[in-house]
Nucleic acid binder design. Structure first.
Lengths: 130, 130
DNA sequence: CAGAATCCGATGCGATACTG
DNA sequence: CAGTATCGCATCGGATTCTG
């Protein structure tokens, strides 16, 4: 009764879809930005500070991509000095919810994964010197 | 992506947690692999074929990382020819569920995003020639 | 069958300097 | 304040070849 041979083709579609999604989010910062932008309109500099470590260049590039994907809305106030605010679209807000689900998973399994790393590295530390 | 070492102990924000999660999954193929591996034990070659387009090298690298993260279990049957099967761990299975949530989001908003792309590109095609 | 090893181009990302 | 432009390294990822 072992169903060893499984038709995976049905899953390929899902896989590609998810890959397409996460490709927009795969960078080092996109997710953080999406989550940080969830608190309402956020200014460029606010993001820059809350994303500790990001370069200005990368922040800009990621914001542009998220905007192009229709996940983020960019509003320029024609004042001096300039004031630009970023807001999640409905679409982006939904994505953010899903990402927060992943966040929950991370909280539950963070320690487990760290332990798995150690175990793996210890086991695969086969040096010729040993 | 393996260069993104995130210090989970120091960072407590949701953004970093999710980033930590998706860093393990951020590659071009990891997600597809996790989803494809959901149907039970899958052999190396099965994955290779179902992941149309992946190179052998990348499949191996991704499998190794997922295994190291404790998401995937690698079982080697000492036969000739060799037979290696990959199975999701409980941890990985949970992650897969969350990824399927993202898949749902992708299905709902795929067209919207494509439209956003067109709109953005059209609007930002400001050439000096126009 | 299931990799490992090597080469190489494409891309990600940071650092720095300049601007309206 | 909110970017843009340029440089340069590190890593990603594909193609190919070799192996137990």
């Amino acid at each position: 009764m072992s169903h060893r041979h499984i038709d995976v083709t049905a899953q390929v579609t899902d896989a590609c879809l998810v890959a397409a999604v996460l490709d927009r989010v795969a960078g080092k910062w996109s997710i953080g930005i999406l989550i940080a932008a969830g608190q309402g309109p956020v200014r460029f500099t606010e993001l820059e500070r809350s994303m500790t470590g990001i370069s200005r260049r990368m922040l800009t590039l990621n914001l542009r991509r998220l905007e192009r994907d229709g996940l983020l809305l960019r509003t320029v106030h024609p004042t001096v000095p300039p004031r630009v605010e970023y807001t999640l679209t409905d679409c982006g807000r939904e994505l953010r919810e899903s990402l927060l689900t992943l966040s929950g998973w991370a909280e539950r399994h963070g320690a487990t994964i760290a332990a798995a790393h150690e175990a793996y590295d210890r086991e695969h530390a086969d040096t010729t010197a040993e």
